[in-house]
C-alpha cells in the first residue's frame, strides 16, 4: 500500500504540492492527472525518494520514505519523467548494473533479466549504446529498469509520452498485465490512457487534490453522460427531429449543427429508449445513434479550470 500523508513541497515562494493525502491499494492502477506544472512529477519524486517533502510523509508497503528511505526504494520500481538512462552504456550493461544495485544474484538475477528483456523485446538492442537507440527503445529500457526487481510498487512518470500508437498500446498492455497484484501509479496527461489502464484517477492542479474517483465516475460527472448523439440520414429533416426531441419531457436541451444532434437528458433520465422509440414511430432515417458515456477531457477541463477562476 502507498499512503501519502499531507505531502507538501515548497520551492521558495512557490507551493508545488499542497497537503496531498491519498492511499493506493494493491491491485489498483492509479492515474495521476493534471495540467503541466500541477505537481504530478513532484509528488511522484517525493514518493520515489528523489525529493524530500517540505512537510508530510508517505509510506510505501509500510516503509516510511523519510525514516527508512532505502527500504522504501527497494520495493519501488520508478520510471522518472523522460526515462533518463546512462547514455554511454549498452542496454545490456545498464540492465546488469540495475540488477546488481537491486541486489539480485545468481539464477534469480538471470531469470529476471531474461524476463524483462523478453517482455520489452529488448534482445536485439542489448549490445547497443543507449544513446543510439530510438525514443521508443529508450523508454522501454527505462521500463525494463523499473520492473527488473519485480517490485511491489511501480511509479511511472508519463510512461507513454512520446511513443507511437503501437508502442503506447504495448506499454499499456504491459501495465495491465502487471496490475493484478501490484500497486501502480502512473502520471499522464493523455486522458484516453486513464480510460485504458487506470482503475482510479486523481486529478490535481496547483498541487491540490481536486478529484479522486474511478474513471467511470469521473465520466459520469460530464454533462455528456447518458446524452444521445444522432446523425440524421437523407430524407429526414433534421429540424423536425429537433422539434420532436425538444418536446420530450426527459430532454433538457438539444445541441449540434446540421444533421448532427445531441440530446441531453434531465438528471436521472435515460434517453436512449425514448429516442429509439421515436425514431421507429416517426420513421426517421438515422445514420448514426450512440449513447455518450461522458467526456473525460471536458470533466478534466471543468475541474482544473473552475478552480483557477475562483
Amino acid at each position: 500500500m502507498i499512503e501519502a500523508i499531507g505531502l507538501c513541497k515548497q520551492y521558495g515562494e512557490l507551493t508545488a504540492v499542497d497537503d496531498l493525502s491519498f492511499t493506493v491499494q494493491p491491485g489498483e492502477v492509479l492515474g495521476f492527472l493534471g495540467p503541466n506544472g500541477a505537481g504530478k512529477s513532484t509528488t511522484m519524486r517525493m514518493i520515489a525518494g528523489f525529493l524530500t517533502p517540505t512537510k508530510g510523509t508517505a509510506t510505501v508497503c509500510g516503509h516510511d520514505i523519510l525514516a527508512d528511505p532505502i527500504a522504501a526504494k527497494s520495493v519501488i520500481g520508478y520510471l522518472p519523467e523522460g526515462a533518463p538512462n546512462y547514455p554511454e552504456m549498452t542496454c545490456g550493461a545498464f540492465l546488469e548494473f540495475i540488477a546488481d544495485v537491486r541486489g539480485l544474484s545468481g539464477g534469480h538475477r538471470q531469470a529476471r533479466l531474461d524476463d524483462v528483456i523478453e517482455r520489452l523485446h529488448l534482445a536485439p538492442v542489448l549490445p547497443q549504446a543507449i544513446d543510439t537507440l530510438s525514443k521508443g527503445f529508450k523508454r522501454r529500457v527505462g521500463l525494463a529498469q523499473a520492473i527488473l526487481h519485480d517490485p511491489q510498487v511501480l511509479i511511472l512518470d508519463e510512461p507513454t509520452d512520446g511513443l507511437d500508437p503501437n508502442q503506447k498500446f504495448e506499454v499499456r498492455e504491459l501495465i495491465r498485465k502487471m496490475a493484478s497484484d501490484k500497486i501502480i501509479v502512473i502520471s499522464t496527461h493523455i486522458l484516453e490512457e486513464v480510460h485504458a489502464v487506470c482503475t482510479r484517477a486523481i486529478i490535481i492542479a496547483s498541487g491540490k487534490l481536486l478529484a479522486d474517483d474511478t474513471p467511470q465516475a469521473l465520466e459520469a460527472r460530464s454533462r455528456y453522460h447518458n446524452a444521445v448523439s444522432i446523425r440524421v440520414g437523407e430524407g429526414t429533416a433534421a429540424d423536425a427531429v429537433r422539434d420532436v426531441l425538444r418536446a420530450q419531457p426527459q430532454v433538457s436541451r438539444i445541441e449540434g449543427e446540421g444533421d448532427q444532434i445531441t440530446a441531453f437528458p434531465k438528471p436521472g433520465e435515460l434517453l436512449l429508449p425514448t429516442i429509439t422509440g421515436l425514431a421507429n414511430s416517426h420513421g426517421w432515417h438515422l445514420d448514426e445513434l450512440h449513447l455518450e458515456i461522458g467526456r473525460l477531457d471536458e470533466v478534466f477541463r471543468d475541474i482544473t479550470t473552475s478552480r483557477d477562476a475562483a
Partner: peptide, 14 residues
C-alpha cells in the same frame, strides 16, 4: 544534465 541523477537517487543507494 542528463537527469540520470534522478534514477541513481531513487535506487536503493544512499
Amino acid at each position: 544534465k542528463t537527469g540520470t541523477i534522478e534514477l541513481l537517487m531513487t535506487l536503493p543507494v544512499t
